[in-house]
């Protein structure tokens, strides 16, 4: 269990950032999901829950998801069920249970850059950006690869509404477990293809080689490229080899789901119906 010496509700983002900068052992508290797993000694716990950061707003050109929105909010927000093929909503559904998702926050999921994160895998395949109070807005892709050196406070995630369709596939050993491998694929109305692969078990990353092949209409090639060009590791949930294999399978399944001639899609058989929705 993490120990905490002082608990503060920040009254403003500036105050929160000042508190964060005031000491190395000061920490922003998200949903607090892993409090009992950690052993860190926290000097000041900074609570952002009074700053109105829990909104999900569907604006003209983009959707904005506040850092303190819960995963359950993401799951149930009507706009997120509609936009991008509903992948954001779908991606968080298998995470433990309703109670857990009522607590876990978008900000903590994104800022912590967890390898297993379903949400990050889905966001990365969309044109998403993170908004940091100090460093400002930056593409999620860049944030994941090169996060700012100085600790910051993530206030929102913005996603450009570029008419993307998207598909999300996660392979799990049991329904509410972490993914063994997560894959999300999207295509904008301009034909911009994106592919992200998460839980490798390393954090979600895009695969440019595969994206190029997708744009060229070669789904099978893209699936192979995703398997060959990304690194995969072994963990309790699966070996590197198996993950590499799954990357190919799930990429192909996303491709099939997104192909315009959906009638021929491989996963459209009635026996499969409902499985991925479960």
């Amino acid at each position: 269990m993490i120990s905490i010496q002082e608990y503060r509700f920040a009254e403003s983002l500036d105050e929160a950032l000042a508190l964060l900068d005031a000491g190395k052992r000061n920490r922003v508290i998200g949903g607090g999901m892993w409090l009992r797993l950690g052993h860190a000694g926290v000097r000041t716990a900074i609570d952002l829950s009074r700053l109105g950061l829990d909104k999900i707003e569907d604006a003209e050109g983009e959707v904005s998801i506040g850092a303190m929105a819960s995963l359950r909010d993401v799951e149930t927000a009507p706009c997120l069920r509609e936009l991008f093929g509903g992948v954001l909503s779908e991606s968080v559904k298998p995470i433990v249970g309703v109670q857990f998702r009522n607590m876990a926050t978008v900000g903590a999921s994104v800022y912590s850059r967890y390898g297993f994160s379903d949400l990050l895998t889905a966001l990365l395949a969309l044109d998403a950006a993170v908004v940091l109070h100090r460093a400002g807005e930056m593409p999620l892709d860049e944030f994941l690869r090169n996060p700012p050196e100085k600790r910051d406070i993530l206030t929102a995630v913005h996603i450009r509404k570029d008419g993307r369709r998207a598909a999300y596939r996660s392979f799990r050993r049991s329904k509410t477990d972490f993914g063994v491998l997560n894959v999300c694929m999207s295509v904008s109305t301009e034909g911009d293809w994106r592919l992200s692969v998460g839980a490798r078990p390393g954090r979600a990353t895009r695969c440019p080689e595969a994206e190029a092949l997708l744009a060229a209409g070669d789904g099978a090639g893209a699936a192979k490229a995703a398997a060959e060009n990304l690194t995969y590791g072994s963990s309790l949930r699966g070996s590197a080899d198996y993950r590499r294999h799954l990357a190919e399978v799930l990429t192909l399944r996303c491709w099939d789901a997104l192909r315009e001639d959906g009638a021929e899609a491989r996963d459209s058989e009635p026996t499969d119906a409902g499985r991925d929705e479960a």
Partner: peptide, 10 residues
């Protein structure tokens, strides 16, 4: 919510 992971202060 899960009270085992929820800080009372909150």
């Amino acid at each position: 919510v899960l009270s085992c992971g929820y800080l009372a202060a909150r």
